[in-house]
Design a protein around this nucleic acid. Structure first.
Length: 897
DNA sequence: AGCACGCCGACT
DNA sequence: GTCGGCGTGCTC
């Protein structure tokens, strides 16, 4: 038996706060595992619970450190991690109070370095280990049990016959059996007569009615709390009352720990068909043999048009074997044609050679301009890794957006390729996760969370489109950045990490700068490399970018949203039979609607934003939608304030552009590509395939267009208004705008034909616009870096943001003030406390949001000393935060609004 | 986090 | 007395 590194760490460290927030549990010295362990301390799956809990190990269960176990906790059953053994109980615990470990869900599944990785993430991102484990495991594996209540709806209608006769008594006598009277009232859809309100109170009645409305009269308490508008206290009390009166029963639903799905498989055990069997049995055996001797029971029954009894009797005689076997719920993708290595150009060859000469950990920035063939480098770098029996991890910003990439990997490596991302169902995720554990899955393509893919023999990590902000988790804890975690993971697994991008993040750029100008052969004693692919494949040129000043258009009397240049280009494109892309920074139709006579603006009732107008086609409902909370209402026919019938629509989103395009260029066929039209599974792929087949001339879309789309037919890219992305208060807005615009521009001219880009803007002299125009990454980045350095922003300084939100407007403001004041006392050197400040949109979904930004000079060192100051004082800060205010700490925040 | 429990003021 | 609101403390 080996003891896992993180568990050693726990014993050695004084500051154990990365595990749970209070280090007070270090009251006992752990003992090495032995066969006689009776007690085990468990980290339960409740981040708020800041202690380890002790359980008895039942004699029939063997538990290793690091196992996932399920344990009783209060009134529920929780998942947890076995942290350490105890040979005797601490003084303050009574053996009679100790409960048994219920079960071991998974054993011995993570390597030492994997546990180290999880610990490091918890430490750096100022969260506890449980939260990180939850992010790493497939959802549902640590799920807790649910308290549910049910109403036996079968007994009540049965009794109803009697009740009906007694109904009359309900009116006069309050001694009548209450449940029956109740059933009666509900069944007749009557309300309880006023004088009988003490039959039950309003909350109790609502619960019964809710239960009654559902087919099997069964709901989780959580669901009831959500449905009924009353305090938790009164709901608890009502449930208690109803239970006492015997109207409802409550029970605990055991945790659904995403058990593997099993099915019965039938295997042929004999070679020749025996003579002593019936005709039906022979048919079954023949079918089975024709299909290779092995089938799922269900399939066999269907194919042989028989029933399972025939197969059972064959099994009884020993001709076939039936066994429960795990059936993996993996997405069945259509098979793709085989794909072979492509010829590499000199830069690709050089990059590949460098990568292949690496031994062990190294970080490579692969700076390849759009269309320079980065994917081919990844593919050829991965091939030898697989041959060596190792596996590879490929992270992409959003898997749904990159069907083409997935297809190429599948075509090259076949079914060893697995995808892993949050759009998979829980079952699919669980099954893929298991395949990774066993090493069956060899190439994982996934989004952010796949950085935690439990691959035992990791040989290479690739982060494609490394600059993309979706690698950062912002709303949930831990607020990790997959790039940062990837760096640690590569180091721990001692394998190379390739960061690929046409527009590298400033972080990656600075990181590789020391080696930039003599990148091959790599510098001695250095583990970061810069590799450049400065040329498109087949030496295709980058498309020229034409800047159109929209102010001049207006002066010249052109009131259309299409400039004269863009109009001409669209016509030319159509005439040549080529395709184009129009980039719009917003979805929907208009960003806001206002009344022409009084200026009234339609606003979201839950957020401090105006509602966007959505219009799809003639005859469909005109909707107003809030892009922050999803609130939707109908566009009123007249102004709610002054009854005027006339509205003005401001700002143009994708729908508006489609509409205008149809009006001005009726011959051009267009497809809209944004999160409205790609809501369903597989619709990205479908739209891209339709466009690829030439079913439309123009693809009109939002940010989605920037990611992983490689369409050879596209020669024209039109950017409707670059300004939408230029002005944000965020320090990163220039970087992000440059990346987005460059990526969009890079969609043009990837095929045989030369491309062109038309960028419309009201700010043609803006440095970002200039940089995009000349494809000048380097000088843009260097000036941007000077600005960052001057203000100690990343990558030169470090940021931690504290975000607070509450339904109570004043409380969140005062809490923010108190916490900001407390931050001033933090011992981190050169610490600046910016704020507290209300978020740029204060109210979203009825919650008021404030934030505090901590900024200090210098990068975080490897031991996170800066952060550990914060961590040590963290509990103090948290105590300043009342229950009604929720607080989220974001280390290295990306967006500031 | 759930959940239980106790206290308090408001109302039949 | 009962109901709803609110704070506090515990879960092995």
């Amino acid at each position: 038996m080996t003891s896992l590194t993180i568990f050693d760490q726990i014993q050695q460290r004084q500051d154990s706060s990365f595990l749970v927030a209070e280090p007070s549990f270090f009251y006992q010295i752990n003992t090495p595992p032995s066969n006689k362990e009776k007690w085990i301390e468990v980290l339960v799956n409740r981040p708020e619970v800041k202690k380890l809990y002790t359980y008895r190990i039942p004699s029939d269960l063997s538990i290793q450190l690091g196992d996932i176990v399920s344990v009783p906790f209060g009134s529920q059953t929780l998942g947890g991690i076995a942290i350490r053994y105890l040979e005797r109980l601490p003084e303050d615990l009574n053996a009679n109070d100790i409960k048994d470990v219920e079960n071991s869900i998974a054993s011995n599944f993570f390597t030492d370095s994997y546990w180290q990785l999880l610990g490091k993430v918890a430490e750096y991102y100022l969260t506890d280990l449980v939260t990180v484990i939850n992010a790493a495991l497939p959802p549902g594996l640590l799920e807790n049990s649910q308290r549910r209540i049910y109403l036996d709806r079968y007994t009540i209608p049965k009794k109803f016959a009697i009740v009906r006769k007694l109904l009359i008594f309900v009116k006069y006598r309050d001694k009548l059996s209450l449940p029956l009277a109740f059933a009666c009232c509900i069944y007749k859809q009557q309300t309880i007569p006023d004088g009988y309100s003490n039959f039950c109170n309003l909350v109790e009645r609502q619960i019964i009615e809710l239960l009654y409305s559902q087919k099997n009269g069964n709901y989780s308490i959580k669901h009831i709390c959500r449905q009924i508008k009353a305090s938790n206290r009164s709901i608890e009390r009502a449930i208690h009352q109803l239970g006492k009166r015997g109207w409802i029963e409550s029970y605990l639903e055991p945790p659904q720990n995403a058990a593997p799905k099993t099915q019965k498989a039938v295997t042929l055990l004999i070679e020749n068909t025996p003579i002593d069997i019936t005709k039906r049995q022979r048919e079954v055996l023949d079918t089975l043999r024709n299909k290779g001797g092995e089938l799922w029971l269900g399939e066999l029954v269907e194919l042989a048009k028989t029933s399972s009894s025939v197969i059972n009797s064959l099994a009884d005689r020993g001709y076939v074997n039936i066994e429960e076997r795990e059936r993996l719920r993996l997405l069945v993708e259509k098979p793709t044609e085989k794909d072979d290595n492509k010829q590499l150009n000199q830069y690709q060859t050089k990059a590949l050679e460098t990568i292949q000469n690496l031994a062990g950990y190294a970080q490579i920035l692969l700076h390849g301009i759009t269309g320079s063939g980065k994917t081919e480098v990844y593919l050829q770098a991965i091939a030898p890794i697989l041959t060596a029996g190792k596996s590879a991890l490929v992270l992409v910003p959003e898997i749904g957006l990159t069907p083409q990439l997935t297809d190429r990997f599948r075509a090259r490596f076949g079914d060893r390729v697995c995808v892993y991302h949050s759009a998979l169902s829980d079952g699919e995720r669980y099954d893929t996760w298991r395949q990774m554990l066993t090493g069956e899955a060899r190439v994982i393509i996934g989004t952010r969370s796949a950085i935690f893919a439990p691959l035992p023999k990791l040989g290479l990590i690739v982060l494609d489109e490394e600059h993309d902000s979706s690698f950062k988790q912002t709303q949930l804890l831990p607020t990790y950045h997959a790039r940062t975690v990837a760096q640690w993971r590569a180091e721990l697994a001692d394998c190379p990490l390739i960061l690929g991008s046409a527009t590298p993040s400033l972080e990656a750029w600075v990181n590789s700068r020391s080696n930039r100008f003599n990148d091959f052969p790599p510098l001695e004693n250095s583990d970061s490399h810069y590799l450049s692919l400065p040329e498109r494949i087949a030496s295709r040129p980058l498309p020229p970018v034409e800047i159109v000043d929209l102010r001049q258009e207006l002066k010249a009397g052109n009131r259309s949203i299409f400039s004269r240049s863009l109009k001409a280009a669209l016509l030319e494109m159509k005439a040549k039979g080529q395709q184009g892309i129009l980039f719009v920074s917003r979805r929907g139709h208009s960003t806001f609607v206002s009344c022409r006579s009084c200026g009234y603006v339609m606003e979201c009732p839950h957020c401090d934003v105006s509602l966007s107008y959505h219009y799809t086609h003639e005859g469909a409902a005109e909707l107003l939608r809030c892009h922050y909370c999803g609130h939707t209402s109908r566009q009123p026919s007249s102004c709610p304030d002054c009854d005027s019938l006339y509205f003005k629509f401001f700002g143009s989103g994708t729908q508006r552009v489609v509409q205008e395009l149809e009006k001005e260029f009726p011959s051009l066929r267009s497809i809209r590509f944004d999160s409205d039209t790609t809501r369903t599974k597989g619709s990205h792929r479908e739209i891209l395939e339709r466009f690829g087949r030439g079913e439309a001339d123009i693809l009109i879309g939002t940010q989605m267009l920037t990611k992983g789309i490689d369409l050879a037919g596209v020669t024209l890219v039109g950017i409707m208004a670059a300004d939408g992305s230029l002005y944000h208060s965020d320090y990163r807005s220039a970087e992000r705008a440059f990346q987005t615009l460059t990526q969009v521009a890079g969609r043009a001219g990837r095929g045989e034909e030369v491309g062109r880009v038309i960028l419309q803007t009201y700010a043609p002299e803006h440095p970002v616009v200039r940089a995009v125009q000349y494809h000048d990454y380097q000088s843009f980045v260097e000036t941007e870096l000077e600005d960052r350095e001057a203000l100690s922003y990343p990558p030169y300084g470090s940021l931690v943001s504290i975000r607070l939100s509450s339904r109570d407007e004043t409380e969140v403001a005062s809490t923010a003030k108190a916490i900001a004041d407390a931050c001033l006392d933090l011992p981190t050197p050169n610490l600046e406390v910016l704020g507290p400040a209300p978020a740029s949109i204060v109210r979203v979904a009825d919650r008021y949001r404030w934030q505090i930004l901590l900024k200090w000079n210098g990068e975080k060192d490897n031991n996170f000393t800066d952060l550990s100051h914060l961590r040590l004082d963290w509990e103090r800060l948290r105590r300043l935060c009342p229950r009604s205010v929720s607080m989220l700490i974001d280390v290295d925040p990306i967006g500031m609004d």
